[in-house]
Design a protein around this nucleic acid. Sequence first.
DNA 1: CGCTTGCCTGGAGTGCGCTCCAAGGTTCTA
DNA 2: TAGAACCTTGGAGCGCACTCCAGGCAAGCG
Lengths: 157, 157
Amino acid sequence: MTADITATVPPFAPTRRTDLCAEPPPPPRPDGQDRYTISEVAAWTGLSAHTLRWYERIGLMPHVDRSHTGQRRFTNRDLDWLTFVGKLRLTGMPVADMVRYAELARAGAGTFEERRALLEDTRRNVRDRIAELQDTLAVLDRKIDYYGCALGAPERD
Amino acid sequence: MTADITATVPPFAPTRRTDLCAEPPPPPRPDGQDRYTISEVAAWTGLSAHTLRWYERIGLMPHVDRSHTGQRRFTNRDLDWLTFVGKLRLTGMPVADMVRYAELARAGAGTFEERRALLEDTRRNVRDRIAELQDTLAVLDRKIDYYGCALGAPERD
DNA sequence: CGCTTGCCTGGAGTGCGCTCCAAGGTTCTA
DNA sequence: TAGAACCTTGGAGCGCACTCCAGGCAAGCG
């Protein structure tokens, strides 16, 4: 087992399943007829159908449309939202906070200020994380160099 | 509750507790007399004593020294190791993989190649994550701008 | 000498983000 | 029209990384 760092962070929208049976639909349906089944959305986002249903249950999705028999029919709008949620997820934002943002978004234009503040917090955090990671990168570079020209240096790890 | 993104990623070594009762000891003990109690190490790393003991139990620490009565006495070496582990943790590497690395380190010089490969994998992953985060940053910038000059644009979220 | 504080152990508990199950209805393909 | 493949629900289960608990030993202080 090698260090598969991203194993716990499943692929999301940007991935668009380029692997087996690649059929990535960036402008997925031609026109206004945008009604996707849950498995289509799952394939497109890389999330499982379970997770999509769970997102809806916890309030992270803005009330998904249903067919006349009760099956979910996602729209391009929903896809856009999921793409954005995927970005937030990459930042490490807890789901509870994403739900909070989703609530604000559903509440309408009156919550612009609060939403902006939330995103600005998030942006600060993302910048901090990038800085941390670059720091970490420097440490890794140093250590890999050390292994490269294995001197009897004061390292032992 | 605002979006405290790093809430699930507790502070680690670089932090060095600059808050209340600040007493950050970068070169903590003057000389060879480096024997820290678990609570000193906890304060210095930002990890809990529980977590330090747990790290040792699972093999993430290389056998910590004990006092004559069985209490742990950490050395500067241990502090260096914990700092490095903190870096790995920031990358999102699963604990199991860090343990694997620790085992290799304990096994001696014969595992240099494998350790280097592991760190190179990790480095690739860190680079990818930085790229993702920069992508996310661009999305956040765009959205914050949108809130800034709130036009009736095609956004709704 | 008693009291407080800190440390020890094994094992149980917690919170998060999914992930899966069972039992049943629906839709598509041959 | 049969059968496979897909969808529905509430609720239970899981893996990770801690986090805490009970019960007990040890050290320092007035």
